[in-house]
Design a protein around this nucleic acid. Structure first.
Length: 838
RNA sequence: GGGCGAUUGGCUCAGUUGGUUAGAGCAUCUGCCUUACAAGCAGAGGGUCAUAGGUUCGAGUCCUAUAUCGCCCACCA
């Protein structure tokens, strides 16, 4: 028998190990239809946070649901090596020990990275187990394992041969702390306080100058022109002349280029082609020299003269002082502008001319946009509005910089010898070749995740059976990073979408709506929540509290009330188990009307829940199942069942209903439902592979439903009357009916009389039932006002309804059954009013 | 500049192709230790659904503006 109180720590202890031993999480039953999900691989950088708990709980719910529906489910787990993120962590850890990455050397450094990875894989595995995730661990993958390595090389070589991967010198985003290139998506723009420095660029041979405004004066060493708009009346005559570059003293040309906006600033722009993407374009148009003035670590190089070796910010400060002394500086205008920061190191990103590898995007992205127009092959987003995000991004995206000056990652399969470049699977034969030192963006490998994890590019059984996958579950924040890239890689290499559906959820915020972050210290560790409330409560709370795609404000109070809900389930289960020990088989042939009533409500609930499950509307599942369990089953049915608890029908109904409840809740609360399920006297092999409840029309009993609904309504009205009139238990009552449920639940035995009495009477009625409560009580002003209020409310309602029904438009245009319903309601109300007035 | 989302009782959120008395949890008030559950039971109060128009027999729901908050993308010399 169950313990008296629900104790999530006891319930969840040791259960996961049993599940693993059962092998139910493993896929491969080819007699069933396949259903596959690949996990978004968490980075091996740290512990899982609440967002992961949410994301994985959603997937587990889908997988457990489909498994119970009889699918051969594969939930493929894995983790991501997370190139720059992990490397930054390992560098930091080594630094604390006084070790420098470069002194350690590549090979040893990678050993440290693998060590780190193993530690964090272990942490994540334990967290998955705590959450109760039914992943198939026999299929687990890592983005840096041999299989992925093979797939990555295949894709790189293949795209290179198609001309879709190329090497080029372009302005990229440079992280001076990690000393690597970044993609546009890894740059976070933040508003920071800065300044416009207005400088004098003297025109050659005159005492006139052009006023140039810049936010980054230290880059002037790389200036190779100043630009004005060719239409700008103020300056157009100067085009072709030269200005003297301050400090440096050399002559640079004044050029006319539409990049210069006459409306913006002074209308004169200094052109630094090696340190600004727009200037780079201008430089191309005018064939300007590109001078890099920064080193890889953000210090000034030899072009900066006496500032060489200074950090870019220190150099700026020193230079501005000197410019001021020399009278070059006109003014400093404080402004706020947005500046790119590295997603991982938070360093200010430097636009930097550099030779990198790129994926040419236009063809690949065009294919995604085209494919989304085909309803049979598109990726179906849930909610659909997120499709726009993918389409917009895919219609307008820059080439993808994929090389990173890091060590932790897939090394680029390119070899160099003098001016020759070789791209292939293995090093070319012959002397003198050396491999590219760089690795690939971590997203290059995760973009292949749905198929590469299944053995692709080999035609493995796994790949053939489970790809394309059924649904991908992820947050809207990584649609660019990941969903788009998986889609174009998949279309390009498998000619199929990677997943039929893409379920998008929001972000977790704190109670005040702020993002959870380390700096705010408002983060919540899911493991703490599991300790306090249990994984079942956490999972249920996270997955049923918002509509799809919406953010979630984490509220511990709500989590607590979810625990209460499970406690309620626990106690209801105790009641059922205490009363059905003798049941040998479920026999639903000889039922009381309340048995029929709960079966009717149950089947309506099954219908609603299943529909919502299929649409991934888990908040609607909650709405349906919560009120069914708490209101219908606990508050009403169990109370009624107590009066027929000795009948086979009621015992069977209790057991049957509880069984269905446990099954419906199991995807959400796997622990508590399987523990209770194991106590049931009649059950299938295991709840995890038991059959999901199916709506059964034969268990719908409309007459009993109406009858018991009215009994419940009557009981409620009766109690309200007693309560609102402060009627003490010494009252007597005359009924126009005899209903044992009413008598028992309202405890009317001994109070029922058959004749009228000449004392104060209170009338309680529903459509068919009427009670007159006799009670010696002085009628107070309050009592009269209450009755008056009821009568008035009824009158208002009647008037509204009469107006409605007198409206010819309504009667002729509204659906007939609605009109009928309204007519019936009106009649009922009139009757009720008469009873009240009598 | 372009796009998206939100605005519903004190708080956090639902609200299914428009259907006429807008729901839930928490909080509040009242009464109960009734043998599944006081982490509970039985009742009660509390919302002109951001604003202004419009479509419709009928609008929280659809359309057009506006406001406030939040997010994404682009630009920012």
């Amino acid at each position: 028998m169950l313990e008296k109180k629900y104790n999530h720590l006891e319930v969840e202890k040791g259960v996961y190990d049993n599940w693993l031993e059962s092998h139910y999480f493993e896929c491969g039953d080819t007699s069933k239809k396949p259903y596959a999900i690949v996990i978004p691989p968490p980075n091996v950088t740290g512990k899982l946070h609440l967002g992961h708990a949410w994301d994985t709980a959603l997937q587990d719910i889908i997988i457990r649901f489909k498994r119970m529906q009889g699918y051969d489910t594969l939930w493929l787990p894995g983790m991501d090596h997370a190139a720059i993120a992990t490397e930054a962590k390992v560098v930091h850890r080594l630094k604390e020990k006084g070790i420098n990455k470069y002194e350690l050397g590549r090979e040893e450094f990678l050993k440290e990275c693998f060590k780190w990875t193993d530690e964090h894989k272990d942490i994540i595995h334990k967290q998955w187990a705590k959450l109760g995730l039914s992943v198939d661990l026999t299929k687990e993958r890592f983005t840096l394992d041999e299989g992925l390595e093979k797939a990555v090389k295949y894709v790189f070589v293949n795209l290179y041969n198609k001309g879709l991967i190329y090497q080029g010198e372009k302005i990229i985003n440079w992280d001076p702390v990690a000393k690597t290139a970044l993609s546009n998506e890894e740059v976070i723009y933040k508003d920071v306080k800065g300044a416009f420095y207005h400088l004098k660029y003297f025109i050659e041979g005159t005492t006139d100058f052009l006023e140039v405004a810049t936010t980054r004066p230290e880059t002037l060493f790389g200036d190779t022109a100043v630009a004005v708009n060719p239409e700008d009346e103020r300056y157009k005559d100067l085009i072709g002349k030269n200005v003297i570059l301050p400090v440096v003293g050399k002559l640079i040309p004044i050029i006319g280029d539409e990049h210069a906006d006459p409306e913006f600033g002074t209308g004169v722009v200094k052109i630094t082609p090696a340190h600004d993407p727009n200037d780079y374009e201008v430089g191309l148009r005018h064939n300007l020299e590109r001078i890099k003035v920064l080193n890889e670590d953000g210090t000034m190089n030899e072009y900066a003269g006496k500032y060489e070796g200074m950090d870019r910010f220190a150099a700026r400060e020193a230079l501005v002082k000197d410019l001021e002394k020399e009278g070059i500086l006109i003014k400093i205008e404080e402004i706020t502008h947005s500046v790119g920061h590295s997603e991982r190191t938070d360093a200010m990103v430097e636009p930097y001319l550099s030779k990198q590898w790129f994926v040419k995007m236009d063809e690949l992205s065009k294919r995604v946009v085209e494919n989304q127009k085909n309803k049979d092959t598109k990726v179906n987003f849930i909610p659909p509005r997120f499709e726009k995000i993918m389409n917009n991004w895919m219609s307008d995206c820059h080439d993808w910089c994929i090389s990173r000056q890091l060590w932790w990652g897939h090394r680029i399969p390119a070899w160099y010898k003098d001016d020759e470049v070789y791209v292939g699977y293995d090093a070319p034969t012959g002397e003198g070749w050396h491999q590219d030192e760089d690795v690939l963006d971590t997203w290059f490998s995760s973009a292949l995740w749905p198929f590469a994890t299944m053995g692709w590019p080999d035609e493995t059984d796994l790949y053939k059976r489970y790809f394309p996958t059924d649904v991908l579950v992820t947050g809207y924040d990584i649609i660019f990073f990941w969903v788009c890239r998986m889609t174009f890689e998949s279309l390009e290499f498998t000619d199929q979408r990677p997943f039929e559906k893409c379920l998008i959820h929001g972000l977790i915020r704190d109670k005040l709506g702020r993002k959870m972050s380390k700096s705010l210290g408002n983060g919540v560790d899911p493991m703490d929540m599991i300790e306090t409330y249990g994984a079942d409560a956490l999972r249920y709370y996270l997955t049923t509290s918002t509509a799809p795609g919406m953010d979630l404000r984490f509220d511990e109070e709500k989590l607590k009330s979810t625990w209460n809900f499970i406690n309620k389930l626990w106690n209801a289960s105790r009641f059922v188990l205490m009363n059905i020990e003798s049941v040998k088989e479920v026999d639903l042939t000889n039922l009381q009307k309340h048995d029929e009533w709960i079966l009717t409500k149950l089947n309506q609930t099954i219908k609603d829940v299943t529909k919502a499950m299929e649409k991934f509307e888990f908040n609607n599942v909650n709405t349906a199942i919560y009120s069914f369990i708490w209101n219908d089953f606990c508050d009403n049915y169990i109370e009624m069942a107590k009066f027929s608890i000795d009948t086979v029908g009621t015992k069977s109904t209790l057991l049957y209903t509880l069984t269905c409840i446990l099954k419906m809740l199991h995807p959400f609360m796997p622990y508590v439902t399987s523990v209770i399920y194991d106590y049931l006297p009649i059950k299938e092999e295991n709840i995890m592979i038991s059959s999901y409840p199916v709506y059964d029309k034969k268990q719908i009993f409309p007459d009993s439903e109406i009858e018991v609904d009215e009994i419940i309504e009557f009981i409620k009205n009766f109690r309200t009357t007693i309560k609102e009139n402060n009627i003490l238990p010494s009252y007597e009552v005359k009924l126009n009916f005899n209903e044992i449920l009413v008598n028992k639940i309202l405890k009317l035995e001994g109070k029922i009389i058959n004749e009228d009495k000449d004392i104060t009477a209170f009338k309680v009625n529903t459509k068919n039932y009427e009670a007159i409560i006799y009670y010696e009580k002085e009628i107070t002003e309050d009592d009269l006002r209450l009755k008056e209020k009821q009568i008035n409310e009824l009158k208002v309602s009647i008037e509204k309804r009469e107006n409605l029904l007198n409206n010819a438009n309504f009667v002729s245009k509204a659906p007939k059954d609605l009109v009928e319903k309204e007519k019936q309601k009106l009649a009922d109300e009139k009757e009720e009013l008469n009873k009240l007035l009598s």
